[in-house]
Design a binder for these strands. Sequence first.
DNA 1: TATAAATATACGAAAAGAGTACAATCACAC
DNA 2: GTGTGATTGTACTCTTTTCGTATATTTATA
Lengths: 202, 202
Amino acid sequence: MSDNKPNTLYAQILVTARKLFWRHGIRRVTVEEICREAGVSKMTFYKYFPNKVELAKIVYNNEIEKGIARFREIMHEPDNSPLDKMEKILLLKLEGTNEISREFMSDFYDNQQLGLASWVEKRSIEVWKDILSDFAEAQEQGWFRKDFRPEGMLIMINKLSEIIKDKQLLALYDTPQDVIMELARFFTFGILPREVDSKGKR
Amino acid sequence: MSDNKPNTLYAQILVTARKLFWRHGIRRVTVEEICREAGVSKMTFYKYFPNKVELAKIVYNNEIEKGIARFREIMHEPDNSPLDKMEKILLLKLEGTNEISREFMSDFYDNQQLGLASWVEKRSIEVWKDILSDFAEAQEQGWFRKDFRPEGMLIMINKLSEIIKDKQLLALYDTPQDVIMELARFFTFGILPREVDSKGKR
DNA sequence: TATAAATATACGAAAAGAGTACAATCACAC
DNA sequence: GTGTGATTGTACTCTTTTCGTATATTTATA
């Protein structure tokens, strides 16, 4: 029924909605506007999506899934050293490929009436589990210290991505990439099992 | 009556409105939102401004005036060589200090009903005259070729500011500033009266 | 304490947005 | 060509949002 292949009307609506939601959030964007921008009639919209909020959920889900995919890719790439992985994950954050627009998210949380906040809550627990299992796997393979707790690491990664954007810090280095490399190095060698320490060098 | 000094409620509303209009345009922003963000009651809003559209006009005017002021400053600074002036004007454009948000402007033009488009039209003719008189003055002082037409130059400056942002061009130079310098040099020496050519060097 | 300024709340009127119905149109297989 | 399903455009109702104002209350200040 709902053709989610690219170059379909379904997809057109989806990318248009993402673009608009990203810039202005959900509440500021109207269904008619999405239709106009996507070059699609309102009837077609309601054929594929029940309403704006459900569309927003789908957009959100797609984005999360894209993030996870990229993340998993990095984690499972065998040629990556732990240092490489750390660097790439931080880069992912920095580039914002993995980041969801503030305008978008604040609408998710503000409109409590719609129950979006609790929905995100539930959804992010699933994602969390997903990512943690990846870390656990990596841990079994000896990528990380046995007693290292992945939960804490995820929180730190988020904190780190804030640090990366810090202007004062940026002023100390030539490029954002340099900051990332520095942080990744600093971070990684505090996590690695001692025997693997040497492997992390590049 | 309408206290337009900073740190007044009037000014608070103005800067808040500008911020919101800049990001989302006029139609997406509500009066109540401006009030909430500015920490001001709705009654106070309507004390100082008749309505949202008039507020938008004031925001627009202020911005234009700020742009003209900076422009005039550059044009009248006696220590500036023509090359310097050109460079600084292009820089002004690049930094976006002088640029008005697209979201904002498109609302001005789209809502034909409100007559904003024609209002902007009228307003920009005045501004145009203003700037052109500055150029004429500069021309009398021998900054430019006698047969040079300032109208064409303004159009070219706008075109140039687009060129500056061109990514392919940026790739050829180390920094945007380099592009500007190059363009300013190129542009200026085609405009100067021949006798002044040497003065333009730096 | 008097006075002006600002706020909070509530309200009716107007406008915008959501979602649906239906006839007209388009695209394409047969 | 004809028929079929997908898509559009228009028009409409119903709901929500937004506007602008009225009124009573609070705050700040001289």
